[in-house]
């Protein structure tokens, strides 16, 4: 029986090796999607938290650059208190936008300045309007961008800094598309949105492309995971509690089983 077993194993190994040397069909296109760099972020790891200054800078980039095309439907102006803005500052930010409210008592819809309880005002009235403006592809909503892409903030950073590279030989990039090796298929409809000094940071930070991309990636990470700080803090407490509990139960178990032969 042992010999049968050995024969089986040999046969299995031979079969598996045959699988390795079988020729793999060559990839059809020369383009290979690049994976984003693994950057270090303040919110990494169990003790990671958001850096409020980075969040505010990131929001500024979103507001001044991204927001002209991209909506953030699941965010409300009031949520910005997590970025360290005061009530008055949030009120001021919101009042810069106009929302259609109503109907009023006469049954009419009317315009009014946005309030902190309003959702972020989208740049287009609906998806169709956005698509009509951009050759049929609506810019995606950014509320969940850091959760909806493999790599999260690393991917966002890579896309924003991945423009202006030479496409591989023979790759056709039509007008209205831009080569970006981090984007699936390599041809993205978004023109390069960020350049150095695209914004003037309120806190005086030098606005390099790298800085802008990092800041807006941090802001979008927060938008996707607004409770990350709270989650990490609670998690650390829960872990400490569980470790103590485990020690207590370990000794309780030892004590209960002390006189048992097992």
């Amino acid at each position: 029986m042992e010999r049968v077993m050995r024969k089986f194993l040999v046969a299995a190994v031979v079969l598996l090796t045959l699988g390795v040397v079988r020729p793999v069909p060559a990839a059809a296109a020369a383009f290979v999607q690049k994976s984003p760099p693994d950057l270090s972020w303040s919110f990494d790891g169990p003790f990671g938290t958001y850096n409020q200054a980075a969040l505010q800078r990131g929001f500024q980039v979103y507001k001044e650059v991204c927001a002209s095309c991209h909506s953030m439907d699941y965010l409300h102006y009031g949520d910005l208190s997590a970025l360290g803005y005061s009530k008055a500052e949030i009120k001021a930010i919101a009042s810069g936008y106009t929302v259609t409210a109503g109907p009023n008592k006469e049954g009419k819809m009317y315009k009014r300045p946005a309030r902190p309880s309003d959702a972020f005002v989208a740049p287009f009235p609906n998806e169709e309007a956005a698509a009509a403006t951009f050759n049929g592809v609506a810019p995606p909503d950014l509320s969940l961008m850091a959760a909806a892409r493999d790599g999260g903030p690393n991917y966002i950073y890579a896309i924003l800094t991945g423009f202006n590279q030479k496409p591989p030989k023979g790759m056709f990039v039509p007008t209205g598309r831009y080569y970006n090796p981090y984007f699936p298929g390599g041809r993205i409809a978004m023109p390069p949105p960020l350049t150095a000094n695209r914004v003037h940071y309120a806190d005086g930070t030098k606005a390099t492309l790298d800085q802008e991309a990092r800041d807006v990636a941090t802001f979008l990470m927060w938008a996707s995971h607004p409770h990350l700080d709270q989650r990490h803090q609670l998690g650390v407490k829960v872990m400490i509690f569980l470790f103590i509990l485990a020690i207590v139960f370990f000794f309780a178990k030892r004590r209960a089983w002390k006189d048992v032969e097992h």
């Binding site: 569980l242 470790f243 485990a246 139960f249 370990f250």
Partner: peptide, 12 residues
């Protein structure tokens, strides 16, 4: 007690 200890390790 053995199950409780196990559950605590699992919870971690």
């Amino acid at each position: 007690v053995k199950d409780l200890f196990g559950i605590t390790i699992f919870l971690i």
